[in-house]
């Protein structure tokens, strides 16, 4: 299987300058590897660094030590050392991220927010189909999602993440605010993506969803307390 994402010796410590330079080690010596068509779910107690690892993989947090290799246009790019413009190119073409919360521009409609993430063809047609699949009724498509419920916003976020068909997808609690019917939709979307060869890393506390999508678990443990 083609390895799509691999970390080597990844470590991350937060230094809180406003707290007298307090150092909080969160990640230590992380070696994670994910192949095309595989879904790896991060597990471990709260504070084990699951979200920190996820954000580091996306380049949202800066890795201190080690490599984060992403297969981008056939070659491995190290997110840990790539310059900002290279990271943006990886995000545009290769690496998708569905966060727990929707952060969007005021005044932009749900449909446009999703459509603008499409990488080919008519974004609006694909966006409409995805929103319908996620049970967002058509009357909401033209409305900016700021006033939507938590579950609706999460589904807008999922549509944004899935529309681009990125070869690698990071999912942070993709079903946290969803009811059973929509959880089932997301499970099917993840399975379809795996069939297409998408490599997926997910955090998900819902045991049923986890069992339904995970090919493998990656168990994390909290780092030792600050020295």
């Amino acid at each position: 299987m083609t390895i799509m994402l691999r970390t080597r010796g990844l470590a991350k410590t937060f230094t809180l300058h406003l707290r007298g330079g307090l150092r909080m080690p969160v990640l230590h010596d992380i070696d994670l590897s994910v192949s095309a068509g595989e879904c790896v779910v991060l597990t471990g107690p709260s504070g084990a660094g699951k979200s920190t690892l996820m954000r580091s993989l996306y380049g949202n947090y800066r890795a201190d030590v080690g490599q984060i290799l992403i297969r981008h246009r056939g070659e491995m790019t190290d997110i840990a050392t790539a310059d900002p413009r290279a990271i943006l190119a990886v995000r545009r073409d290769t690496l998708g991220y569905v966060s727990q919360f929707l952060r969007v521009v005021p005044r932009v409609s749900a449909l446009d927010i999703v459509a603008e993430q499409a990488r080919d063809g008519d974004g609006h047609e694909q966006a409409r189909a995805l929103l319908m699949r996620l049970n967002i009724p058509e009357r909401l498509h033209a409305i900016p999602p700021a006033t939507f419920s938590g579950g609706e916003q999460q589904r807008i976020n999922l549509a944004r993440g899935f529309i681009a068909n990125h070869p690698i997808l990071l999912l942070d609690e993709p079903t946290a605010s969803l009811d059973a019917k929509n959880r089932a939709v997301v499970i099917r979307m993840v399975r379809d993506a795996k069939v297409r060869g998408t490599a997926i890393v997910a955090i998900c506390h819902d045991a049923d969803v986890r069992d339904a999508i995970a090919d493998r678990l990656f168990t994390m443990t909290p780092c030792q307390e600050a020295a």
Binding site: T15, H17, R55, N60, Y61, R62, P84
Partner: peptide
């Protein structure tokens, strides 16, 4: 650096402030 990285994981004391 990258906007979201600098704002979500600021390194310099002044940026953290």
């Amino acid at each position: 650096g990258l906007t979201d990285q600098v704002l979500d994981d600021p390194q310099h004391p002044y940026t953290q402030l």
